[in-house]
Every structure is written in C-alpha cells, then in structure tokens.
Design a binder for these strands. Structure first.
Lengths: 218, 218
DNA sequence: AACAATTTTTAGCTTTGTCTAAAATTTATT
DNA sequence: AATAAATTTTAGACAAAGCTAAAAATTGTT
C-alpha cells in the first residue's frame, strides 16, 4: 500500500458520508487536489487491488477491506494529532499537516504503544473520534451550531473545518471543545447568531456556525 | 528533497568516514541496496542540486550543504529512536526500521519539541551521539573492544552493528551501555576475549568484540 | 606495455502517479 | 426527442527512481 493509495482511500472514506450512493470522480479529484483523470487512474488501481468497487461513471464505494485500511490511517492521524497537542505543546491549528505525514508510518506496535502512552484517548484535539484497534469508530451525535434554535443550549464537541484560520478565530473568541454555548438570537437577514459563551455574548456568522459541532442538551 | 535523496545523502555521510577521498559508487549502491547504475543516477542528481561534488569515476563528496542535510536526518533518526525506547517501551533492537521512516517527517518545530520532550538527550539508545539543532555532532572517542589489551578496563559506550541479532545477543549476556568491562584474557588462536562484566566472566568472540565500542579508562 | 579484471557510466526500459487534450457518457434543458 | 452542458474516461506524455545489458574507464597483473 503506497502513501498515495492510502490518501485516496482516506479521501473516499471521508466523502462517503456526503455521497453514500458512490463517490464521484470529480469529488475525489477535488479532495486530493488532482485532476479527474488522475483520480480515475487511481480508483481503477484500488479497484484492481480489491479495496473498493468501481463501475465507470458510477463512482467509487469502499468495500470492507478498503474501509478498514482507511480507518486505520484515520486512527493513526488522530492519535498523532493528540500526541502533538498533549505532549509536544502544539496548538490544535498546527497539527494537521504533520499528522498527514505521520499517519503513513507503518508499525502496529508503534501505534498501539502510542495509544497507551496517551492514555487511550477517545477523541482527537478537534473532537473527532479515534477508532479503536479493531476499527470500531464511535459515532458522536452532533449537529452544526447553525441548526439550533433560539433558546437552545449545548456544548461544543468538534469542528468541521480544521483550517488554521478557523481554529485561530475560535481561539481568539475563547471557544474550545467542551464549552457551553447558548443561542440568544437568530438574525434572519444573514443567518448570523448571537450566542452566549464564557458568560459573554457575541455574534457569530452563519459560515462559522456551520463549522462548529454542538451536542445539544437533551 | 525527496525521501530517496535524503537516504542517499545519509548513506554518503556514513561512508565518508571509510572513504575520505571520495565515496565509490559501488559502496553507495551496496549501502542503499540498489544497483551501481541507480546510484550513479542519483549521485548526479544530488550533484546537480549542489549537495555534493561528483566527478565521473572519482566518487562522491558531500559539500557543507549536503552534509548539513544528512546530519539533520541523522538527528531526527536518533531522536525518534530515543523516543521509542524512552517513552514507548521499545527495546534497542526494535527501533531502527521505524526510525528510518520517522526520520523523513518534515517539521522543524516537531523535532525541536521532541528534543525538549526527551530532555535533550546526548546519545541515542545505541550510544550514538545526537547532533544538536545547528548540526554540531560530538565525537565520542571510542575504540572497539577487541583493540584493548589484557588488564585494560573501560565502559561500553556504543555498538557498531545495530542488528537485532547482535543487540539481542548483548541483552542475553547483560551487556548494555554504561556497563564496565575488564579484559581478563586474550586468546591468540581465534582472537576471542575473556571479559569480566557484571562481576561474572564470559567469553566473547572476535566478531562480537569488533562491534562493541568501549571508552577506555584514562 | 598489453591484456584482464574491476568499477563506473550510458542507454534504454518499467512502474507510479501525475498531467493535458480529446473522446465518450450521462444529465439537464429546451 | 434532440441538443447542450457537465462529468468521466481514454490516450499519450512526463518525472522519479529503479532495473538490465552493454560500453567505457580505471586498475591490476603479467
């Protein structure tokens, strides 16, 4: 399994939630920042290797073997991100690129020991669940902040956009995982929200609210 | 700088102590487990990129830029080996292959933080010196055990052969870095030695004694 | 000095993963 | 249903890094 093959599997895995009937070539190409023709080539190779199902013009669907591989890579990515933040003083907006490299290191023992060393964390620094050794991945029920209604309350459990820009915006406004958020107002005009967090009220754009995951209080 | 280029630089660096007048193509090919023709190709590319001096049939010589790159890779390799042993319960014979992968991860901050996290170790688990951030590498004055004479004493400071087989042999005989070793006898016939270590005497073959570095007491 | 042996280089081919441009297929629109 | 638009695939090229086989240069031996 080459580095590039692993990255494609991961891309297909992530896109499957948006395209459950088959992930389009163009979507894969965009995710991988390559051209559709390149994506086609790679998808064919992965189908050849029996990691996914592919019918021309019908998109790609991981089979259990391929999904397993993808999940293993994701497990490694999220464990390394946790390591960087917990042990090496990285902030949550600095870890993605490095974890993209580290996730391809091959050693079962390494990742098992790393998991133990970190105390078997359940989620990574962005709130995403870390699959266990057998590939089981906990589905955290979450919704985007913008879905909530006036008066609703919840806690911040993750982000959809892991870009430095967004994460630093959150840092600046003291919004982090575990924080309690209450909807004070919904502005019809631009779908922005007024929320209460840290006892203070602030305004948050629809774009930002679309990228913040909340677990609503029951 | 590709992974392969980094590995070649490292190979040339290691071979320069044996071939100070220029590292022969064949030696590089052997070290890299490729064919001489492949080595020639790569050496030319590295010369093209101004990392080493190359004249056909004259071997390769790193220039300061190339040497710097090589040392950085070696620094990363040895820090990762230390991490694996100190933090993740690896033994010294298990770390080499994984460090070969980890040494290519690109992030200055990562390696700086890792160094601090480990408490800025001076040597790796095999006794090899870890270069500092500026590429300064301490030359530990050492000699192979087989050079010592009857009655000499010293402490074990490193190994020349990092193979699992050799390291496990040392483990089995409770020889590790820092151990005091005294030469009780030299056997003329096969150049084996009788040594005292851990208060017990044992016999050690010439081959083994050639791969164990000792710092002789002044 | 001449020939043999060794070392090194060159030339040409392969695979991986990318690209562009053109062809084919599917979807949308009138 | 026919045509336009969008998507996807095919065909052919390219760079990296390796290979084999053959040529060239160097070194060693008589």
């Amino acid at each position: 399994m080459t580095l590039s093959e692993e990255n494609y599997l991961k891309a297909v895995y992530h896109l499957e939630s948006t395209f459950p009937e088959g992930v389009p070539t163009n979507a894969i190409a965009e995710e991988m920042k390559t051209k559709p023709s390149s994506a086609t080539d790679m998808i064919k190779r992965l189908a050849e290797k029996d990691l996914l199902a592919y019918k021309p013009y019908q998109g790609a669907k991981l089979n259990p073997t391929g999904r397993n591989h993808a999940i293993k890579v994701i497990r490694k990515h999220r464990l390394w991100e946790s390591f960087l933040v917990e042990k090496l003083n990285f902030s949550w907006d600095e870890v993605h690129e490095i974890a993209e490299q580290l996730e391809h290191i091959k050693s079962d023992k390494l990742i098992r020991e790393l998991d133990n060393f970190l105390g078997n964390p359940k989620t990574d620094p962005h709130g995403d669940p870390i699959p266990d050794e057998d590939g089981n991945i906990e589905i955290i029920q979450k919704r985007v902040l913008s879905e909530l209604e006036k008066g609703d309350e919840g806690i911040c459990v993750g982000v959809n956009d892991s870009s430095s820009a967004f994460l630093q915006y959150l840092d600046k406004n003291e919004i982090s995982l575990g924080k309690k958020i209450e909807i004070l107002e919904k502005e019809e005009f631009d779908n922005s929200l007024v929320i209460k967090v840290n006892g203070k009220s602030m305004s948050i754009s629809n774009l930002a609210a679309n990228n913040l995951y909340i677990k609503k209080y029951a």
